[in-house]
């Protein structure tokens, strides 16, 4: 199976999850763990960086749906950044831009969180 890995970095109040490789039904639980841990630590300002993500399947998309409500209930958000065209197309087909803020750069997303404060 293809590889997938994640890294989580805290930048101030914002946590950034970096995705790398192939996100599908088999690797999705790793990302779910990342989200769960952040929520357990009450970190609800989350940016997901897609720069190194090569592929996302429908099960991978489901991960974002699973946590968005909980995060927004706590006045937080999940913002998506730096997607390549292929990945963006998958999000776009499903209409994700209507549900999530998608930014070209990680800084933009982080600044958006900061400007709210």
């Amino acid at each position: 199976m293809a590889d997938f890995s994640t890294t989580v970095k805290d930048i101030g109040d914002v946590s950034v999850i970096y995705l790398n490789g192939f996100l599908d039904a088999h690797t999705a639980p790793m990302l779910e763990n990342n989200f769960s841990e952040l929520i357990n630590k009450n970190r609800y300002s989350i940016v997901v960086n897609f720069e190194e993500l090569a592929y996302i399947s429908s099960a991978g998309l489901g991960v974002f749906m699973a946590f968005i409500e909980k995060v927004r209930e706590n006045n937080g958000d999940i913002k998506l950044t730096t997607m390549n065209d292929k990945v963006y197309n998958i999000f776009d087909l499903l209409g994700f831009p209507l549900l999530y803020e998608i930014y070209k750069s990680e800084d933009e997303a982080i600044n958006k969180f900061k400007s709210l404060k």
Partner: peptide
């Protein structure tokens, strides 16, 4: 035509989209 996937949103966002 524009449209959200089924089950992604259950409020007006879906029907509006």
């Amino acid at each position: 035509p524009e449209g959200l996937g089924l089950g992604l949103s259950f409020d007006n966002v879906f029907s509006d989209s």
